[in-house]
Design a protein around this nucleic acid. Structure first.
Lengths: 111, 111
DNA sequence: GTTGTAAACATTACTTTGTAGAGTAATCCG
DNA sequence: CGGATTACTCTACAAAGTAATGTTTACAAC
């Protein structure tokens, strides 16, 4: 049972896959993160992270038989495992506990 | 103007400092994270990260004159700079955009 | 004053994550 | 076949995080 928590970029990748559902594969994950979060995604980091998450048992992969009329190298789809879902839940829950109710509106911090 | 985003642990540290307000110093930050997020905090990571955030201009430090009756080495208080607040806002906003509405309730993912 | 204890910050050597960018593979179409 | 397209891979490096030990400062007992 993988214990630890997800690193910053790992969490982005996992969340993107959760969002994309059955349409999650490398390049789509990249787009999802870049567009939704406006966060640049280094292509090296992306695939390295996907493999790492796979090794940790948080993701599964499946080579798609190339859809008809779809050009280019065939995609390698990925989906969350139960452990993967669990990891997302834990990481986001902890973040929420830290984020909730944090006041940032610089009140001129008296003292 | 520091552009980038906060790493996983960096964000925890920044959020803890935001929470602690005027009472933020190394050891207190450690407690806050360990208790609230139930996330182990390596002491090396903590001070290294504080220094790094200071160098990036996201934090300021102030040596406290040791409070009377307070044993041990004097504390080094830290507070968020405007850039620091901005960094927290951006990092959390991006996370929210990725997290919001993500469904994790494994529906047996048909297909 | 030396010794002991406590609290807090610092350093070191190492592992894990993330970046940048060039490179390779598989498919389609003319 | 040759070119274009899409997607995955690799390599060399930089940044962030871990674990454990070490140092500094202060107080209090003796």
């Amino acid at each position: 049972m993988a214990a630890s928590f997800l690193a910053e970029f790992e969490l982005y990748v996992m969340l993107a896959i959760a969002r994309l559902g059955d349409d999650a594969y490398g390049a789509a994950v990249r787009n999802e993160i870049e567009e939704r979060a406006d966060r640049p995604v280094s292509i090296g980091a992306l695939y390295a992270t996907l493999h790492r998450l796979g090794n940790k048992g948080l993701l599964e992969f499946e080579e798609a038989d190339p859809a008809p009329g779809q050009r280019g190298r065939p995609r390698k789809y990925c989906r969350l495992t139960p452990d993967g879902r669990y990891a997302i839940e834990h990481s986001t829950a902890k973040l929420h506990r830290m984020m909730d109710g944090v006041a940032l509106a610089d009140p001129g911090n008296r003292r």
